[in-house]
Design a binder for these strands. Sequence first.
DNA 1: ATTCATAACCTGACTAGTCTAGTCGTGAAA
DNA 2: TTTCACGACTAGACTAGTCAGGTTATGAAT
Lengths: 234, 234
Amino acid sequence: MEKYQKIYSDLLKALRDNVYQPGDYLPSDGQLVIRYQVSRETVRKAVKTLANDGYVQRLPGRGSVVLDRKHFVFPVSTLESYREMVAQANLDASNDVIVIKQNVPVPENLTGGDSPVLSTLVVRRRWVDGEEMVIDYDYVNQAVIDHVPHTAAKNSLFDYFENQLGLQIDYAVKRMTVEKGNIEDRQLLHIDEGMSMVVIRSETRLSDNRILSYTESRHRADRFTSVEFARRHK
Amino acid sequence: MEKYQKIYSDLLKALRDNVYQPGDYLPSDGQLVIRYQVSRETVRKAVKTLANDGYVQRLPGRGSVVLDRKHFVFPVSTLESYREMVAQANLDASNDVIVIKQNVPVPENLTGGDSPVLSTLVVRRRWVDGEEMVIDYDYVNQAVIDHVPHTAAKNSLFDYFENQLGLQIDYAVKRMTVEKGNIEDRQLLHIDEGMSMVVIRSETRLSDNRILSYTESRHRADRFTSVEFARRHK
DNA sequence: ATTCATAACCTGACTAGTCTAGTCGTGAAA
DNA sequence: TTTCACGACTAGACTAGTCAGGTTATGAAT
């Protein structure tokens, strides 16, 4: 693991374990330089990343103060796996795999008019705290992944791609709208006609810019929350 | 202006002017080092920021390729002013200032239970392409800004804070939910009873971590779109 | 024609330093 | 007691390198 990654994850763990609490200061760059025996740029990279992720704020002349994140769990923006997200938010979650089907062309409203892609379609229903909350349609690029095992879908596709297959996921573009629920929404989530759905359509890319998957994620609007952390300049 | 900022904004301008098109490569780090007579770390910082913002992707061994952003205008996440956003998306937009009122305590559902703050409340209605689309409730921290002029509200609060007052806006936390429209929504936006609203509640902070403002932004759900760009690791 | 080594690029990570500017506590002078 | 200068400490920007590892074109050997 890279040195700055190690420092980043050590500090992140300490933050999650409340070793440093909101209002506290992290060790200064200089102290971390001594502790980790690295150059200051390496320390800066690690702490700067924590700042970009909304954990701390760097105050020139003072230090890196820990921010209060009590309000912001459950981001849509962060590329974390669903399981990570739920675990952090102390929620109870599980998955139903509805169907896994090969050779499915990706719908045009997901690709945005780009060249057609053959995919493995994975449809899942997500439960949170005993309620049916979300339907996910994952169209996994068959040019990248030839087969999606049922166990991977049952646990976490993301985790499977990254940790089992060693793929480097790099970024995702997500478009969010609010739409009326369709028949499948009503059947799978047991909601009334007229219930609105928050629909998030995204494409996920690898670090070599190949498309890994397209996803349509349909949430009960009445239960939907998302939290964003946005920094002005990175 | 800092050197890396200059390089960043030059490249950004070139990207917006289509000097570099999707699929093209930016000048390599080495070329930019020569062009700007700076060290490579300075160039890297500039181009890395473009990558974090979703403009380009850095491909080791190849270069920095320009990404296709045709699908993602109109982000909620980016801390850009509303006017910038609309200008980029080629939309027609204007503002109604409904009311400006001093000494208003910020509602608790915005502060999230934090200590009460006295504010100047600015209520505005935003029009896009001739339609009434959004109501904004801005609670501007009176401890930071004692008076909000009507012209600032009519144009852009953000712009006023940054460019007129020289305040350094650093980050915002935004929570998004979908709710039924209330009476004021119906009156101001002329929508039917039962219309859903996308409600974005946010707090904006300065670089010294003082709270600048709390905002509640209420959008017609049927017209709402947001686009996110999320990178895995910065 | 195909294969393969190589050289010329590219970005990523890291180092060890300089210089600037802001914060804060201490202690001396008013 | 208040003020003010200073030193110690903080982060930001920047430099001029090194080394590693991936990509690509070229050109020689098969």
